[in-house]
Design a protein around this nucleic acid. Sequence first.
DNA 1: GCGACAG
DNA 2: ATCTTGTCGC
Length: 219
Amino acid sequence: MKIEKPQSWPQTVEEATAIQEELRGQVIVKDDLPQVRYVAGVDAGYQEQEQQTQAAVVVLSFPDLQLCDQAIARCPTQFPYIPGFLSFREVPAVLEALEQLTILPDLLLCDGQGLAHPRRFGIACHLGVLTNLPAIGVAKSRFIGTHEVLPPERGSWQPLLDQGETVGAVLRSRSHVNPLYISIGHRISLPTALDYVLRCTPQYRLPETTRMSDRLASS
DNA sequence: GCGACAG
DNA sequence: ATCTTGTCGC
């Protein structure tokens, strides 16, 4: 797919913050997606003591979740890991990988938060806005926000609150297993996002998209 | 000032 | 994220 990549990437937290505050205004928080036929999973891994970032993207058919396309890209890691700025180290490589895709995905499942971010602009929002694709943030652990106790059954969920605002949801994707932290990335509502995440998670704790891109990224 | 802190 | 084997529990 064709992507309009930024001309340059920030070198400081101040520059990165400015970019987040500028782009967050472009996030669409309501459903604005086509019929979903292909779902993509994106993830990144690191090699050579984090000097190299390798991104992987897989495209699965939906709802049957069969692998249809995949791509890998590697580039020098160009931003340190600082909570709140994860996207600046992963997005450059992920965009390179997405460009190689033959199949245009209808929805992106990202490893990390979307709106559940201090400035409401986690990696799922960042990727969604830069690609203009509907995107969901699927994180394995909490970053910000609080929530009520969650029933142990698959499918149960609770809103994730931060400063009186619903920034996402905590979702039990498998009974009696640690929940997932779901938030809006771009062009999708929270209820719809929860539905897609569950439909992409037929067996394990993590969506098939995430499992497959994880495996590819760290190889 | 003291913790917390996506991947 | 990454370093890493066997082991505990549903």
